[in-house]
């Protein structure tokens, strides 16, 4: 029983790591650009499919070689959506941005479905037996998830607290107008924000797909989780997003001990609705 419980906690942390990667990206975009990017989930999904594309026929690249190009393609997708869609709308209302990002999300999801169909796919690795550690089974993929997301958090910390660009991004996220007034170049910081958010989305999507599978709907469901985590942690708050992701991951997996696994996704959804009720929805409407 106790090792069963430990396994649940471990699975929760594992899921939490990935949700945190998603949520940090989402909260970053919100903080700097002041809107909820509903297409963030599609960056997750496309990241996973980019890797699939590179590893599938005709390229047949091995994972170790395809991994970085897949992430770069995801970053390009993020930068492209800013350059061609969100940048021209920089001065638009939050509602416009919200609906635009919803539209983009549909477009990208259908795009993936067009190329790869709606069915569930995997990267085609045989499932490796996990090693046992304190009665908890860990597969190599899961180990990769823990290691790379921990590494990401450390790098993010160093970036946001030690580098000038990172500090500028936090300043802009605090108050864009004041940042402009003080001569902090916001254009480059905004580009950097997209790079980081897309990178985290792509990485998380790939890790998730390595551990489970890919399908065009994976973006949307994970957007809900990232969004719930973001709301839990306080929108725009980086470490809050990390913590929120962990809480969602853990509560989902613990809930499965009590409920049927079919309800797993409902947990994040429930938390999201609850947080929206508590906080009202100032995140969608400009603050007075």
């Amino acid at each position: 029983m106790s090792s069963f419980f430990l396994q649940t906690i471990f699975n929760g942390i594992l899921a939490g790591c990935i949700y945190a990667l998603f949520a940090i990206g989402l909260t970053l975009i919100y903080g700097v650009l002041n809107f909820v990017n509903f297409a963030h989930g599609e960056l997750i999904m496309w990241g996973a499919y980019f890797l699939y594309f590179l590893m599938d026929r005709p390229l047949n690249l091995p994972l170790s070689i395809a991994f970085l190009p897949a992430l770069c393609l995801t970053i390009l997708l993020g930068l492209g959506s800013d350059r061609f869609i969100f940048k021209p709308l920089r001065k638009a209302s939050r509602l416009t941005l919200l609906i635009t990002s919803l539209g983009l999300s549909f477009f990208l999801r259908n795009g993936a479905q067009f190329f790869w169909g709606a069915e569930i796919r995997t990267y085609g690795f045989e499932i490796k037996r996990g090693m046992k550690l304190f009665g908890v089974s860990i597969t190599p993929n899961q180990l990769a998830i823990i290691v790379s997301s921990t590494l990401c958090m450390i790098l993010l910390y160093l970036f946001f607290y030690k580098s000038r660009m990172g500090k500028s991004m936090r300043a802009i996220s605090d108050d864009l107008e004041l940042a402009r007034v003080m001569g902090i170049p916001s254009d480059r910081a905004i580009q950097f924000t997209w790079i980081i958010a897309s990178f985290l989305a792509g990485l998380g999507g790939i890790l998730l797909a390595l551990d489970t599978n890919l399908h065009p709907g994976m973006g949307l469901i994970n957007l809900v989780k990232a969004f719930a985590a973001t709301l839990l942690g306080g929108v725009g708050n980086l470490w809050g997003a990390l913590l929120g992701g962990m809480i969602i991951g853990l509560s989902e997996n613990i809930a499965v001990l009590l409920l049927s696994p079919g309800y797993k996704d409902a947990i994040a959804f429930g938390i999201m609705v609850m947080m929206l009720l508590i906080r009202s929805s100032t995140i969608f409407w400009p603050k007075e």
Binding site: K167, S168, A171, D175, A179, M182, G183, I184, P185
Partner: peptide, 15 residues
Amino acid sequence: FPSLSVLENLEMGAT
């Protein structure tokens, strides 16, 4: 910038 430290505020001001 309320969520930046005093030092970071000055660093930003020095841009």
